[in-house]
Computed example of a mutant assay.
Amino acid sequence: MVYIVVMIAIIVGVDLLLLRSKPLARLIVNVGIVGLFLTVYMRFVKKA
């Protein structure tokens, strides 16, 4: 649960601070962040 909250906080923070007026860049970066979190989850957290 904490993992999801951290991911959402990072996505919202990046959106508000850096990519407010660039919708395509927001989409690409958000998909990248989710992909990164999914990779880390599958690689490290799920094995524990």
Rank of each mutant, 00 (worst) to 15 (best):
G35M: 04
I8S: 13
S21D: 14
V14I: 04
V34Q: 08
R26S: 05
I33M: 04
I10N: 02
I8T: 15
L16S: 11
M7F: 09
K46V: 07
V14Q: 07
I4A: 10
R26L: 04
V29A: 01
I4S: 14
N30M: 00
L38V: 06
L16C: 14
L38N: 06
P23W: 02
G13F: 04
L24I: 13
I33Q: 03
L24R: 15
G13H: 04
R20P: 00
L16A: 12
V5C: 05
K47H: 06
V40R: 00
M7L: 06
T39N: 15
R20K: 07
K47F: 05
Y3R: 02
L38C: 08
S21L: 09
V34M: 11
A9K: 07
L16Q: 12
R20N: 09
T39V: 15
A25W: 14
A9L: 06
V34N: 06
V6K: 10
K47S: 03
V40M: 08
I11D: 09
F44I: 06
Y41G: 03
I11W: 06
I4P: 01
M42G: 11
V31A: 13
S21P: 06
G13D: 05
S21C: 13
V5M: 07
V5N: 09
V40C: 06
G13W: 00
V31I: 15
I4V: 15
G35V: 03
V6S: 10
Y41M: 01
L16W: 10
I28T: 10
R26N: 01
V34Y: 05
G13V: 01
F44E: 01
V12W: 11
T39S: 15
V5S: 12
L17E: 01
Y41N: 01
L16D: 12
V34W: 06
R20S: 09
Y3L: 04
L18N: 11
V40Q: 02
R26W: 00
I33Y: 02
G35Y: 04
I10H: 05
A9E: 08
R20L: 06
M7E: 09
L24F: 15
G35L: 03
N30E: 07
K46E: 11
